[in-house]
Design a protein around this nucleic acid. Structure first.
Lengths: 234, 234
DNA sequence: AAAATACAAATTGAATACAATTGGTATATT
DNA sequence: AATATACCAATTGTATTCAATTTGTATTTT
């Protein structure tokens, strides 16, 4: 029984470390080192790799080591193309199917998210936000949508970690808007307002997109040397 | 190198057998027996199970054997809820991004599908149809949509195998309509007509839904004993 | 000196051996 | 007789050993 626990501990560790960018996208995973660290032989470690590959955390290549799933420029484009649609569908179904116990869990997750905002630790915030959305996925309960949704959540967390530095007041303010969105989402789900829930999904992802724009395009200086063209993403 | 080939052979066999219902949903997979059959030790067989679990072909439960992914009543509901949306998105992106080589591959797949319709072997038809749609997924090339899409394709094939007997002329006719849809889809993709491609996706899935209704509700007898209400699904 | 080849070390993959868990059957108990 | 318990066989999970592939380095070749 002890080995099983060490195995789940490894899974949890890897998920956590990958979501928080503690393990960088594309970085190599050493099956021997991880085996020693978690007191497991290579066999179960490799099984964990294959499992996390199936979930989108990790990438497996033949005769080469496992790597943390990449997060490239093109994936960012794919992300904002797919996210609004999938997320709107998930929240619509969440509003349709949410059970009372799940709504309580969602409220608890939101409390955690608030707390993370207060303490200001980026990793905590990303994980709490991730947990919030995970619950909406459970509420929707559609086995065909979940695989894509969960992959979106993985990269949502990582993108959130990447493209945020609390330098500008706008970025800090966006976080508060996100928190407010969550509250509105909870309310829409609680009353079963599907259309409202789907609408909020759009808003919520637009916010994420804006956040990235802020990061990619820092506040312009006073005197423009050339012409500054405003990029419109995706 | 030989072992690697036997491993891929096992993967291909399982995928094939699962898609064609040769292996029934929910049936147990014996890792020892499969290992002997494909001249592999249990270790690689188990890795294959985990991989196919990640892809949605198989379900893994702790300390119990691997099973072919279930296909329950509730999954059927989930299916027709998610399929139109995902498929419309895939075809829209396919029309947007398809490359010439891919279009050729799609035409070849359609030729295979025609041939399968001619010979009338259900498994051949399901596999050819599956391949056709797989290519549209490759064309779309969005890593976030693919996981859900591929799971839909797995069950699309299996549902197609389940809910079809060429008894009624309507069912045979539906197949021809599906073939025609494919031709229209190819045309829309070739000219890059996104809206048309998305529209065709809706039609195509409506056809699948009607096909199931035909199966669940066989041709009514002459004299209605009670009232026959037409079901509208989802 | 640059490129190609050969070799060695390190890493990954598969097979075997060992341990733990599950499920069924027979025996015991009430 | 019905239920509970103990044991055994079968199956699953992990560790270890062995094989194959990759990768870095040194040597050779042009």
């Amino acid at each position: 029984m002890a080995a099983k626990d060490r195995k789940t501990a490894l899974i949890d560790h890897l998920k956590h470390a990958i979501l928080t960018l503690e393990l960088e996208p594309g970085s190599d995973l050493d099956e021997v080192a991880l085996g020693e660290a978690f007191e497991l032989s290579r066999t179960p470690v490799r099984e964990v790799f294959r499992q996390l590959d199936g979930l989108g955390f990790v990438e497996l290549r033949d005769n080469r080591g496992a790597r943390v799933a990449a997060l490239s420029h093109t994936t960012l484009r794919d992300f904002f193309l797919a996210a609004p649609m999938i997320y709107a569908a998930i929240l619509r179904l969440a509003a349709r199917n949410a059970r009372p116990a799940q709504i309580e869990a969602l409220k608890a997750a939101q409390a955690q998210f608030r707390e993370a905002l207060r303490t200001g630790v980026a990793a905590e915030r990303a994980l709490a936000n991730n947990r919030f959305h995970e619950i909406t996925g459970e509420m929707a309960g559609n086995i065909y949508l979940l695989p894509s949704f969960q992959r979106l959540l993985i990269d949502h967390a990582r993108i959130g970690m990447s493209f945020y530095r609390p330098r500008t007041s706008q970025m800090v303010q966006n976080l508060d808007t996100a928190r407010h969105h969550h509250d509105l989402i909870i309310a829409a789900i609680e009353v079963g307002d599907e259309d409202r829930a789907a609408e909020l999904a759009e808003d919520h992802w637009a916010l994420s997109r804006d956040q990235i724009e802020l990061f990619v395009m820092p506040a312009a200086l006073d005197a423009p040397l050339g012409e500054i063209t405003r990029k419109t993403s995706a």
